[in-house]
Amino acid sequence: MSLVINGVEKETDADGFLVEADLSEEAINDIAAAQGVTLTDEHRAVINYLRQKYTEDGHTPNLRNLMKGLEEDGVLTEVSSAKLFDLFPDGGAAKQGVKIAGLPKPFGKGGY
């Protein structure tokens, strides 16, 4: 499978996650469009946080740690699982948010 980002074909896994991270702004815009998500400042704040954590830790946080980090860092004014699922309705920020961020598939507790 593949996804076209800024005119370049990128390899994806069976679930549509990029195999290799793409941290370009075009990746965010193209993947969000393909996912049918209209990006807001809140989406971008979560996506930038996910990218930061991926860059620092080599992986993205699971939902629990994501919520804790978003709250501690003041990324969102309201942090709840319901809010994150409102922003990213197809699996929440820990899955769809990671996908739109242009990052590889996360493998948290229990796997995805």
Rank of each mutant, 00 (worst) to 15 (best):
M1I: 13
M1H: 14
V4T: 14
N6R: 10
N6S: 13
E9W: 08
E9S: 15
T12W: 09
T12E: 07
D13M: 10
A14K: 15
A14D: 14
G16V: 12
L18W: 00
L18N: 07
A21N: 04
D22R: 05
D22T: 02
L23D: 08
L23Q: 05
E25A: 10
E25L: 11
E25Y: 06
A27V: 01
A27E: 04
I28Y: 05
I28N: 01
N29K: 15
N29L: 15
D30P: 10
I31P: 05
I31L: 08
A32D: 01
A32T: 00
A33K: 15
A33P: 01
A33H: 08
V37R: 04
T38A: 13
T38W: 06
L39V: 02
T40N: 03
T40I: 03
E42F: 00
A45G: 02
V46Q: 00
I47T: 06
N48R: 15
N48E: 14
N48A: 15
L50R: 05
L50K: 05
Q52S: 14
K53L: 12
E56V: 13
D57G: 07
G58Q: 04
H59P: 02
T60D: 06
T60K: 07
T60P: 07
P61C: 02
N62G: 15
L63A: 15
L63S: 15
L63N: 14
L63I: 14
R64E: 12
R64V: 13
N65A: 07
M67F: 01
K68M: 13
G69D: 03
G69L: 06
L70M: 09
L70P: 00
E71W: 01
E71A: 11
E71I: 03
E72Y: 05
D73H: 10
D73M: 11
D73K: 15
G74Y: 04
T77M: 12
E78Y: 14
V79A: 00
V79R: 01
S80F: 01
S80D: 05
S81E: 15
A82S: 11
A82E: 13
F85D: 08
D86G: 06
F88K: 00
P89Q: 07
D90K: 15
D90H: 11
D90V: 09
G91T: 03
G91V: 10
G92W: 00
G92T: 08
G92L: 09
A93L: 02
A93H: 00
A94M: 11
K95Y: 13
K95H: 15
Q96T: 07
G97S: 01
I100S: 01
A101G: 05
A101V: 01
P104L: 03
K105Q: 13
P106M: 06
P106K: 07
P106Q: 07
P106C: 06
F107V: 14
G108V: 11
K109P: 03
G110S: 06
G110F: 06
Y112I: 12
